[in-house]
Each structure stands twice: as structure tokens, then as C-alpha cells.
Nucleic acid binder design. Structure first.
Lengths: 352, 352
DNA sequence: TTGAAAGCGCTAACAC
DNA sequence: GTGTTAGCGCTTTCAA
């Protein structure tokens, strides 16, 4: 069933059929109806490939994501897919893993498939060394590239992110203000946002000029799912003689491990031990006490990202970088402080 | 840069270029090299749309999933995407939500986009009423449809699933054998596998002919992420006068809520209160004590599903339904029993 | 082994 | 408003 069959049965030319297909104004209402009727009764569907060939787009966006089974990334992918779909675009998903080479490869594949844009979900796509980001710049020379949770100053690359630095900075200050001096920063990623968070922690600690020594920082390399390994890691730190009574964790999994560790070690939480983690995912409510966690407004970020993308696709000028601020959701792993009463309003900042 | 440009620069016809592009045998090694060289040096990439038009495929598989932010479904999507990609296929993801109408709509869209097959991730796509599954049968008349975790006896529909019925049946029997008579079955889905699990519970309970009354069964309707609401639900059950000392939960979230409930209610787990849940996800290790949970071998299922799909695409006859058995992973929410010593070997059963 | 040419199904100038 | 026609970039007979 092609446009030719329809044109024949409707007694018009294929051009007319194509016109009603594309909602052209220059078709009389009468012929439009006739054509529509024939299409309907034949159950006709235009061939997407032919259409793609003609229009040079199949209304498809490539979504790259290191690991869509990571709950946080999965959520982001979900939000983005929903919002793309609501505007009639489909999502080609590519789970790349964390290796640069695989990312480059996937990127090229997506470009080859002629997607209209590529969305990088998660800050792990942006590396510290400029040359490692060349693959993004290259892709951006073909289609607009949207980056969630990381920033890059490159033509045709647009970033939407949360202010991780400030969120962790504030959390650290708050914990220090609560009287905890031996705080451990526990993280598992050197991604763009991972680096920003770490900086936030270090800045806050240095500012306090606490305890002389360098602040305690631990990098966890194991599986993102292996809570037990994380707990063991913390135990090993203490066994090595470094005691700590507070943990700032780069994500909720690590935070949850910290709560487990504290329970095992016999600390009372939050009286003797505090934890603040990041993401405010469901995990925050899974342990006892529940985790105080920083909410980075993922849905808002995704919404904004997609809105920006469509602006670009429509040819509008759009902000190259947008930063939203996070919000600390206080639960049982921190003591109440004076700052709790402050209104923690999320502020949306646009940067050009 | 098209095939014409290449043919010209290589001094051959476009047919020859096309042949090397498609790895045809009937090209002399010499011309093949020449063409390849030219392509390389021009950075030529074939136009995917034109290719799709000619070959009538873009090597793309549609993945439908009610909610890819659900950790379990996200994991399935991840596994499937990986395995498809490793065979050179791309994944068009469509998150449909749980409404039938939206599923029908998405299905049609995917067909319109000319995917080579559709994979339904999650048992919620298969309804109890035959007519509600017509949309699947219709799609199957166009492309093979693969269903994960649900079965349908329909031409061109292939199912790969875990034996949920038996897993829950065994878990229930085990708990009863452990001396718990007032067991609550806690679930949140009427999906195909949801119904199978429930049946397994009921069968085991009826067999024991316990306590006269009907077994305690509670359906939770709230958000899949709201642990507190689940705990409240359980509390309300007891407040209504129905006490229970064991919970069989249809997934780990519900199981985790049961552990929280037990702690609040002052039960000692597992001495006075047992919990067995389903999925064996990371959540099982997030509470204290940790959850005994049934592992349904998701990765194995996905692997098998994709392998089956490729068999079909290659024109082979493949089993229409494959059932794998689950495995109970025992942790802190159940007491050790005699059956623990039994070797719980996963068995793979094929049915034609 | 290679080339010429006819599609694949649609879009979009251009002419009427 | 509508039709004719030339592409879009590739695949694939059919001859040579």
C-alpha cells in the first residue's frame, strides 16, 4: 500500500496525496476528505524510510547513557523519553558503559542512524581532558548535543545541570556547623559532576580550616550495586585508624552504606554520626534512620533540557548552559539545625 | 557524500560501490580495496534512510516498557538493549505507562516506524481478557513480538518467562513449614506475572488448609516508590484486627516495607516475623535485616529472549514459550530451615 | 566481475 | 488547487 495506490483509488495525483499527508493548506477540503477516506479505508500508513529519505529526518533523538539500569540514570532516561514522545519524537537508546572508546563508538553509530540530536544522560560523558571530549565536539558539528548534568563550552553543545558544587558545599558546611569535625567524603565517580561535588566538599572543609590535616576523602571503585562492598570499604578506613563521625556521600547508595556502617560500628545516628547523601532517590527511605539527601530536581532538569532541544530544532537561539539549584531534604541521618528553618527555595539560573 | 561520489572517484559504477558496502563476494579484491580506500579517505557513511528504503529495515527493534524508571524494568531494558546492540541492532524505546490505550498507541507508532520486532518488557502488557490483548496479536501480524515475563498463545508472539507461580508457591510452603500460619500476601500488580504469583500463594495456602479462613491478601495501589505508604497500608491491616507474622511480597519494595513495618511494630525479624520478597534487587540488601528474595534470573531471561528473536529474524523455528525457574536467595528475614540445604538448582525448561 | 537501469515510497519544485 | 516530474541515496535485477 503506497501513495500511488491511494492516489489511484482517490482519483488524484500522488502529489495531492502527499499534500494531505503533510497537512498542506493548498488542498480543497473536498479532495482532502476523499483522500483521507481512502487512506482510512485502506489502513494506509506512509513508509517511514521513504519519508525519512525525503525529509532527511525520522524525528528520532539519540539518548546515550552509560548504564540505564542505574536507577538515577534510568529515571532521567524515562523523563526524557516521555517528554520527547509527547512532542512526537522517538528515542533511540544507547547504553554505552563507562569506557570512552565505547562512547565514541556509540556516538558515531547514532550519527550514522541520522538522529536529529544526541542527548548525553549523565555527567560521565564529559571528561577532564579536553581531548577526551573531542568526540562530543565532533558529533556537535553534525547535530545539536544536549548534556545533562555536565557542562561543555563547545559550539552546538547545550548543558542543563544542577549546581552540585554548591549543594555539597552547603551540606558540608551544615554538617560542620552541627559540630562534626571528622567528616568523610565518600564518592564513586570522577565524572564532571563527581568532580564538582568533590570540590564543593573540599572548599567547605578548607574554609573551616579544621583539624589541621587534609579532609578525609574516599573513592569507592566497586560495583554500584554492592552495598556490602561499600560498607567494607568504610570499615577498612576506620580499621586503618581514620575515625569519622560524618559522611557526605556522592549518591544515595553510598549514603545507605554509610548508615549500615554506622549501625554496625555501634554509632547512634544522628546523635553520634551524621550522613548526607545525594539524589534523594527511593533509597533514601529504605534504611533506618532514613537519609537526609540532596534533591537535584531531575525532572525539572530533563524538562528544561528537552524544551531547550526543541527550541534549537525550531531554529531559536537557546541558552547554552542552564543551572538549577538543588534542595536538601532532611530526614533522620542529620540533626535539626538552625538552618532547617531557612526556606530552601530552588533558584533557577540561566547563563548564556 | 553519496555512493555516486565514491563511484566516480574510484572509477567504478555505483553498483560496485553498493556491492562492497554490502560485502558481496562478487567484487575483485583489487576493486574492493580501491573503493574501500576512497570511502575511507572521504569519510563516507551510507545514508541510513536510503538504505532502509532499499532494504526495508533499519535494524531497529522497538522496546516497549510501561515505566523504564522502575528499577526492575530498567534492568531488563538495559540487558536487552546491550544484547541487541552487540548484534548490531538499535533500540527504539517507548515508555507507555500502564494504560491499555497508551500501549496500543505506542505499539502502532513503533510499527509505523518500521521496527523489525517489538519486545514487550514486563508482564503488564498481557491482560486477562483476550480482547485486551488484540493489539498484541495485531502487531504480531506485522513483526514478531517478544514478551518478557508473560505468555500468550498467539501466532508470531514469543514468550520468555520465569516460573513465578512455582517460586511463590515454594516460598509460601517454606514459610508455612517454618511454623508461620498467618501469612499476608502483599502485591501491587494484576499483571500476568502478578496473577501467577498470587495463584502460587493461594495454592500453597489452600493446600495447607490452614486456619479455616481465607488467606490474607492485600493489594497496594499507591506509588511504586512510596515506601511509607506501603508501611501505612500494612499498619492499617493490623489495625483492622488482622494480625500477621509473615509476608510474602510480590516485589522487593513491598518486602522492604514489610521489614520496616515489622520493626515499627516491634516484631523481631526473623524470630517473630518473616518476609520473603521477589526480584532479588539491590533493595534486598538495603534494609536490616536483609531480605530473603526470589531471584528470577532476569539477565538469563533477557539473553534468551534476544537469542530467540535473532533466531526468528534469521527465519529459524524457535520455541514459542520458554520458562526458567527462579531461585530463592536466603538472607536475614527468614529462619534457616531444613530445605536450605537442598540444592536449589535453576532448571531451564523449554516448551514448544 | 562489472555496469546500466529500474525501482524503493516519498517530497517538493514547477507548471498549469 | 492540482498534476507532472525530478530527485532523495541506495539495492538489485539483468546483461554484458
Amino acid at each position: 500500500m503506497t501513495i500511488y495506490d491511494i492516489s489511484e483509488k482517490a482519483g488524484v495525483s500522488i502529489a495531492t496525496v502527499s499534500r494531505v499527508l503533510n497537512g498542506s493548506q493548498s488542498v480543497s477540503e473536498k479532495t482532502r476528505q476523499k483522500v483521507l477516506d481512502v487512506m482510512e479505508q485502506c489502513g494506509y500508513t506512509p513508509n517511514a524510510f521513504a519519508r525519512g529519505l525525503g525529509l532527511n529526518t525520522m524525528q528520532t533523538i539519540g539518548i546515550m547513557c552509560a548504564d540505564s539500569s542505574d536507577p538515577y540514570l534510568a529515571k532521567a532516561v524515562y523523563y526524557i523519553e516521555q517528554k520527547l514522545r509527547s512532542r512526537g519524537y522517538d528515542s533511540l537508546l544507547s547504553c554505552t558503559g563507562y569506557e570512552l572508546e565505547a562512547k565514541e563508538y556509540s556516538m558515531n553509530l547514532l550519527i550514522t542512524k541520522k538522529v536529529d540530536s544526541i542527548i548525553l544522560v549523565g555527567s560521565n560523558f564529559v571528561y577532564e581532558r579536553e581531548e577526551d571530549n573531542r568526540y562530543i565536539a565532533e558529533a556537535a558539528s553534525q547535530v545539536p548535543v544536549m548534556v545533562l548534568n555536565a557542562a561543555m563550552d563547545t559550539p552546538n553543545v547545550y548543558s542543563v545541570m544542577s549546581d552540585d558544587y554548591t549543594s555539597i558545599y552547603n551540606a558540608t558546611r551544615e554538617m560542620v556547623a552541627g559540630g562534626i569535625r571528622d567528616i568523610l567524603y565518600f564518592y564513586n565517580s570522577h565524572s564532571y559532576s563527581g568532580r564538582r561535588k568533590l570540590s564543593g566538599f573540599q572548599a567547605a572543609m578548607e574554609e573551616q580550616a579544621l583539624s589541621g590535616g587534609a579532609p578525609l576523602v574516599e573513592f569507592y571503585r566497586g560495583s554500584h550495586e554492592d552495598i556490602h562492598a561499600m560498607v567494607r570499604h568504610l570499615r577498612a578506613v576506620r580499621d586503618a585508624g581514620k575515625e569519622f563521625h560524618g559522611v557526605i556521600a556522592a549518591d544515595d547508595t553510598l549514603g545507605l552504606a554509610a548508615v549500615k556502617y554506622a549501625a554496625e560500628a555501634g554509632y547512634r545516628v544522628p546523635e553520634d554520626f551524621s550522613v548526607i547523601s545525594y539524589n534523594n532517590s527511593m533509597l533514601a527511605c529504605c534504611c533506618q534512620p532514613e537519609l537526609t539527601s540532596i534533591d537535584n530536581k531531575l525532572e525539572t532538569l530533563c524538562e528544561h533540557l528537552v524544551a531547550t532541544l526543541f527550541g534549537i530544532l525550531e531554529g531559536k537561539e537557546m541558552p547554552k548552559k542552564t543551572v538549577f539549584s538543588g534542595e536538601t531534604v532532611r530526614r533522620g541521618t542529620t540533626r535539626r539545625t538552625a538552618s532547617d528553618t531557612e526556606q530552601a527555595k530552588p533558584i533557577c539560573t540561566h547563563e548564556r
